[in-house]
Simulated scan of single mutants.
Amino acid sequence: MIYYRDLVYNDDEQFVWNCYVEILGREPDSTGFVHHVNVLRTGRPRAMIVRSLMRSTEGRRRGTKIRGARAAFFWARLFRVPGIGSLLARIERVNDTWELRRSMRRLELETTKLVAIAQEQADMFARSPNRRSALALRDAESGLSPRGLRIFEELIGQG
């Protein structure tokens, strides 16, 4: 199942590429690729690009279903209504700010977890009577090959 949200969270070029691959089942031709990227850069909503590819002869023949596309088409049309569109744009900016804050909190929590793991490994290494074996154990667990382990040890002055 293809989800609309998975298509749209990319830069313009990647978005167009993904739409062709997911909707039409092929890589874009150069003319179509350039055309759709330029259309996006003029301010046309991404939902309208998805809709045009889905409604093309090739898109209808393939019959790709995209979950969430119908709602995206509706909202893209609503944004174009004078008065309502500008109000919705303001609401969307506020929502984007909240989403950014939530993402920053998640990133902060994940970073805190990673710092704790790194500190735990550093403490284990510092307490080890045989630092070389502690280093080898840690790196063996991380999947380094013996050659990779030697290179790593040389880099940190243990070899």
Rank of each mutant, 00 (worst) to 15 (best):
C19H: 00
R26G: 11
R41W: 09
W17H: 07
S30D: 14
V34Y: 14
Y20Q: 00
I23W: 04
P28Y: 08
S30H: 14
Y20W: 06
W17P: 00
C19G: 02
R46T: 01
G32I: 03
L24C: 07
W17E: 03
N38K: 14
S30P: 09
T42E: 11
G43S: 06
T31C: 14
V39Q: 06
H36Q: 11
G43L: 06
N38I: 08
V39A: 10
P28W: 05
P28A: 12
H35P: 07
N38S: 15
T42S: 12
R41Q: 13
R46N: 02
G32F: 04
G32M: 04
G25W: 07
V39R: 09
I23F: 08
P45E: 02
V37I: 12
G32A: 10
S30A: 15
G32R: 03
V37H: 03
S30Q: 14
R26W: 11
R41I: 06
V21Y: 11
V21K: 13
T42I: 05
P28V: 07
R46W: 05
V37P: 01
R41T: 05
S30N: 13
P28H: 09
T42C: 10
E22G: 07
V21D: 11
H36N: 13
V37R: 02
G43F: 08
E22R: 10
S30F: 13
E22Q: 13
P45L: 02
H35T: 11
R44W: 09
R41G: 10
N18V: 01
V37G: 05
P28I: 07
V21R: 13
V37F: 07
G25H: 07
I23H: 04
R44L: 10
V21E: 12
V21F: 12
W17N: 03
G32L: 04
T42D: 09
D29Q: 11
V39E: 06
V39C: 08
G32W: 02
H35K: 15
F33I: 01
G43T: 06
P28F: 08
E27D: 12
Y20D: 00
R26I: 08
R26H: 11
W17M: 05
R44K: 13
P45H: 05
Y20F: 10
C19A: 01
D29L: 11
E27L: 14
T31R: 15
E22A: 15
T42P: 04
V34R: 15
E27R: 14
V39M: 11
L24S: 03
V37K: 04
L40R: 01
E27Q: 13
R44C: 10
V21T: 13
R46D: 03
T42Q: 10
N38M: 14
V39K: 05
E27I: 08
R26D: 08
W17L: 08
C19P: 03
N18G: 02
P45V: 01
N18Y: 03
V21H: 12
R26F: 12
P45I: 00
Y20M: 01
T31K: 15
C19S: 02
Y20P: 00
I23G: 02
W17G: 00
V37W: 04
L24G: 05
F33A: 01
H36C: 08
P45Q: 00
T42H: 10
Y20R: 01
G25A: 06
V34F: 14
S30C: 13
V21S: 09
L40N: 02
G43K: 08
E22D: 11
R41D: 05
G32D: 03
T42W: 08
P28Q: 09
R44G: 03
